[in-house]
């Protein structure tokens, strides 16, 4: 397999790597950059464990070809704000932790886009992050805790 060179910004730091041409962003992060915080749960873009922010938007890194990341910015769970992690943890967002980094990145997206956070039904919005441990209540409590009192449509609070 031929090699390509990819230069991109990872958690605010510019990095360059020479990688196999058919690498996924997930492989680039985990194996070439040693940022193992992003997990591979399924390899098919279903579970969201591999979710990172690409130019500020949540993506499944198992579906992003590494060659498309040149010149772009990627943020992973390792860049999360400690106060966000504290709030998530205090709400029971993490149990086994395998889905957690993906959840953290979607949370980050919401904090950076309060207009989106205001518009969406949180339960629906978090549906791209599959979790087998929590039943999702701990995750939703955590995300709400981080978002604070933004006005938001939330099916949990609607009529039964």
């Amino acid at each position: 397999m031929d090699k390509i060179e990819v230069t991109f910004t990872l958690n605010e730091v510019e990095v360059t790597r020479s990688i196999a041409a058919d690498s996924r962003l997930l492989d680039l992060l985990r194996y070439e950059c040693g940022e193992t915080g992003t997990k591979e749960g399924c390899g098919e873009g279903e579970c969201g464990a591999c979710c990172v922010l690409l130019d500020g938007l949540p993506v499944n890194s198992c579906l992003v070809p590494a060659f498309q990341v040149c010149g772009r910015s990627v943020h992973t769970a390792e860049s999360a704000r400690p106060t966000d992690l504290e709030k998530l943890n205090a709400s029971g967002t993490a149990q086994c932790g395998a889905c957690s980094p993906g959840v953290v990145m979607v949370t980050r997206f919401l904090t950076q886009n309060p207009d989106v956070a205001r518009d969406v039904d949180l339960r629906q919005f978090m549906s791209g992050n599959l979790c087998r441990c929590t039943g999702y209540d701990g995750i939703l409590e955590g995300v709400k805790s981080v978002l604070g009192d933004h006005e938001r449509i939330d099916s949990d609070e609607g009529p039964a």
């Binding site: 397999m1 058919d22 996924r24 390899g43 098919e44 198992c62 579906l63």
Partner: peptide, 19 residues
């Protein structure tokens, strides 16, 4: 965007592919 093509990417043959 690759959301169809990249599904289960490691299981697909890539030699000879021209993207």
């Amino acid at each position: 965007g690759g959301t169809d093509l990249m599904v289960s990417w490691p299981h697909k043959p890539h030699d000879g592919l021209c993207l």
